[in-house]
């Protein structure tokens, strides 16, 4: 059932963004349409992705790339910049939730494992990926 709704919502958005409707629209509310659509679309994609044993956030990111200014253009660059306020708010909420999950006693207990993961796994990975992106920056200019 969800897949049907997903397709219908997608087609509806495709229709709403069609060029012949543009003269009848108020562009000031384009970000609001985008938020509503993205919320439902990304959530449904996230649910589908989780069935493939992947984290829901992968689905959210894929939905964002697909709907964003470089693929389907449901969200224009201007929409994305207008929504930075919500972006900041969402980041603060994520950080707050993550902080709320941390228990100081547990962190102290696992400090040795955490520091070794940070030193030998996270930091080298971070360096390798950064080197790779810089070497390929000409091909992926939209990331920079």
């Amino acid at each position: 059932m969800n897949i049907v709704v997903l397709i219908v919502i997608f087609l509806l958005m495709f229709f709403l963004r069609s060029s012949f409707l543009v003269p009848f629209t108020n562009p000031g509310f384009s970000p609001t349409v985008a938020v509503g659509f993205t919320l439902i679309f990304a959530f449904l994609i996230g649910k589908k992705i989780s069935r493939l044993k992947l984290p829901q956030i992968t689905g959210f990111i894929l939905a964002g790339i697909f709907c964003g200014p470089y693929v389907m253009k449901f969200l224009s660059g201007e929409d994305v910049s207008n929504l930075q306020l919500l972006d900041g708010l969402a980041l603060s909420l994520i950080a707050l939730t993550a902080g709320g999950e941390m228990r100081l006693a547990q962190l102290k207990r696992d400090s040795r494992a955490i520091s070794s993961i940070l030193l030998f796994q996270t930091a080298p990975h971070h360096r390798w990926i950064r080197c790779f992106w810089f070497s390929q920056s000409a091909h992926f200019s939209f990331f920079f």
Binding site: L16, F24, T25, F29, G36, F37, I40, F43
Partner: peptide, 22 residues
Amino acid sequence: KDLLVYLLGLVFFTSGVAAYFN
């Protein structure tokens, strides 16, 4: 939780589309 997301998303979307067309 899912119900709230659907509700928020669809109300957002519907009111946004309405406002988009004045």
